[in-house]
């Protein structure tokens, strides 16, 4: 019965994602009629050529980026929660996205210029590499700390501390760098799914898809890890290897999203809980795909909320929207933790 539930939610959420993609293409700061959008997507001519430009160069990549980032952040949140045996873990709380930010900051401030369009393909990979190095370093540090700190809450606090330290290094870096670099860095820190251009989109999608594929391939060991590392080992899972793979996958997903869209909070933390509440299970067989779809839908919704005010207001920063949606979920989960089976 529960299996059917997973399939049902999968279908409903897929439809939701399609609907939200359509909404993201239709709405924006410039009003474009529905028929015009339809014609543009079918490759036909419309009355204003600027409309086609807006759809293809801005809304379409932004929409795909939001979809992929949402999926990436949620899936990495889910993996971190299982590996650290802590339902309140995610890449922003554990300081992993700060690590990625530092990597990006180093690359950008060293190379100069943050404007998204200025990135060449080699620039793309140097930024991704910087972010990945930063993310994986923090992950390794957290993994080391988790062997010293047994309490889950204390580990989270240690992660927050690492985040602060890394952020202070970033502040120092920006203090000593050119002011226009700083401005672009601050804007980047507000979060924006518009950070990936159409030319970068294939490479970006490839990186995220690789990370997500790895995550999906790790479903079986993740389930075994629910019993803790010692049971998992006894079930023939090589915990060390699985941890390394999980590290790589979460590092990749966090790094790539952070590099291009800024450190986006709360999606990775809240979405796995939404998925568990919907499904009523911790079984990654259904939890993983539903979390992925849920995350995509959530990010698309956030992106829509950012552009909806439109007109003179312009686009609201993404990180102003995600906590409003995410924090209530987390608080609800904390209040009800005794009643929620997956906490016990």
């Amino acid at each position: 019965m529960r299996e059917c539930r997973g399939v049902t939610f999968g279908i409903v959420l897929s439809l939701g994602v399609v609907f939200l993609v359509a909404a993201n293409l239709l709405f924006g700061s410039v009003e474009i009629p529905v028929e015009a959008v339809w014609h543009i997507l079918r490759g036909e001519e419309v009355e204003k050529s600027s409309w086609a430009y807006i759809i293809w160069e801005s809304r379409f990549p932004q929409c795909i980026t939001a979809l992929l980032c949402g999926a990436a952040l949620s899936v990495s949140g889910l993996m971190l929660q299982t590996v650290f045996n802590n339902p309140l873990a995610d890449s922003s709380i554990l300081g992993i996205s700060s690590g990625a930010s530092l990597g990006v900051a180093l690359v950008v401030m060293a190379g100069g210029g943050m404007a998204a369009g200025a990135f060449s393909i080699s620039g793309f990979f140097s930024v991704v590499f910087g972010a990945l190095a930063g993310a994986v370093l923090v992950l390794l540090l957290i993994l080391f700390l988790s062997s010293l700190i047994k309490s889950g809450v204390m580990l989270l606090i240690a992660g927050i501390m690492i985040g602060y330290v890394v952020s202070s290094v970033i502040s120092l870096l920006s203090f000593f760098s050119a002011s226009d670099n700083v401005h672009s860095f601050v804007v980047w820190g507000l979060g924006d799914f518009g950070g990936v251009s159409l030319e970068q989109l294939p490479a970006f999608s490839f990186c995220i898809a690789a990370g997500l594929l790895m995550a999906i391939l790790l479903v079986k060991p993740l389930n075994a890890l629910l019993l803790g590392p010692r049971y998992a080992e006894n079930l023939g899972i090589s915990v060390r290897r699985v941890r390394n793979l999980l590290l790589l996958s979460t590092g990749m997903l966090t790094a790539v999203t952070t590099a291009f869209c800024g450190p986006i909070s709360f999606i990775g933390l809240a979405v796995p809980h939404v998925a568990r509440l919907l499904l009523g299970t911790s079984n990654h067989h259904s939890l993983m795909p539903v979390t992925l779809l849920c995350g995509a839908a959530m990010a698309l919704l956030c992106n829509l909320l950012c552009v909806l005010p439109g007109g003179s207001v312009g686009v609201i920063p993404l990180n102003a929207v995600t906590p409003v949606l995410g924090a209530p979920v987390v608080i609800y989960v904390i209040i009800n933790r005794r009643k929620l089976q997956y906490f016990n």
Partner: peptide, 17 residues
């Protein structure tokens, strides 16, 4: 893993299964 099976006193995260 097919020869030795263990039962521990470890706390698990399996409440949701």
């Amino acid at each position: 893993s097919r020869l030795i099976g263990i039962v521990l006193t470890d706390k698990t995260q399996a409440g949701g299964l």
